[in-house]
Design a protein around this nucleic acid. Sequence first.
DNA 1: ATAGGGTTAG
Length: 443
Amino acid sequence: MASTLPLPLTSPPQNPTPPPKTIITKPPTFRSRLSQLCKDGRPDLARRLLLDRPIPSTSTSTSTVLWNTVLIGLVCNGLPEDALRFLSLMSPASVRPDHYTFSSALKACADSNQLLLGRSIHARILRRYSRPNRILSNSLLNMYSSCGCRQVQLLFDRMRARNAVAWNTVIAWHARNARPSDAVVHFRRLLESGTAPTPVSFVNVFPAVACLDRALPDAVHALLLKFGGGFVGDPFVTSSAVAMYSELSDMDSARKVFDRTALRNTEVWNTMIGACVQNELPREALDLYLQIFESEIVSTDSVTLIAVLMAVSQLQSIDYGRQIHALVMKSAPMDSPVALSNALVVMYSRCGEVETAFRLFDEMSERDIVTWNTMVSAFVQNGFDSEGLMLVRAMQKKGFAVDPVAAMALLSAASNLGDSRIGRETHAYVFRRGSVSKGWIVT
DNA sequence: ATAGGGTTAG
């Protein structure tokens, strides 16, 4: 290109051809190969490549970067246990862990719920650094929060430089542990501290405000509009706000938030459809599904189909049910998730087609506890009590223990059959197993 | 290269 330009002859030569650098791509470095493998979802290959490397001719600090790359790759690909095993192979003589190592290790502990290991890493951090940096402190907060340890508050209170991430972590911790007012208090203190809230601040606080003062949800939503004009378009924030209004059964507000969102991805649609189902508005749910279908802009996934099947179950319309079933077969013919098959079984059962429900149940290659409970309840609810009882035996043979849902079906079947022996046995079983913490209701 | 986020069947 440069050679075709009419250059004046007097001017000095100006690199007539581009340097070879821009033509020949540099060979990938060992680190870039590792991180590419991790990005491609093959951290196992990256790990093997690193472990099989003949002799580490690189310096200790370079090694650390390589090890961190694989470690982060394992964590980000949902393999926290492998990450921690890999970490234990890091010999301190040749690889010296750094901030990145520790923060990834803490995330691995958080993801695999390993409090003891997390604590030991915390101790190593304190031995290494007099004061952990902000990211390490936030990683520690997250680890303790994920592992359900109360140390979160103490650690947070002692932090000097708290950024939004730290605040958000504590807000989420309170909200998830059924302390909505503490979550809101920290949200308020976040605003008072002068730290700018982030979209995550709102995502975390929304679930907490639904169960408090009725004025709060609108107040927090107003704050959202005031603080982050940019956040309202965030699909996460939208989903969270829709879910909050749905929880309050304020479907007008939920719909308003949804309608005002420019960027609606599959998850946002799923939340809105799920909100309709939760509030027993199956027609609205189906209508929304139809809109996705016609717009062809966003795609649907198994979560969408599950919600739609629940709506059909509420409507008890076998015609719609069969159509959705056909769509399920078309969209996910092979390995559809168990939850989707379960939802199909529920739908046929609610529409009164127990035989079809059982055929689907019978054809399933994988069944979980919900599958068994669903089919047992399907039998009992449709008057096939003996079949329900027999299926409970089959379920126990497969190693699934009777849980509160199955117990309810059993009691109901016993009562329908007038079988006092099974009724008494189930009652005794419930009493033996019973504890409120396990979801059992003891009477 | 590092921290926090929404929906999911009985």
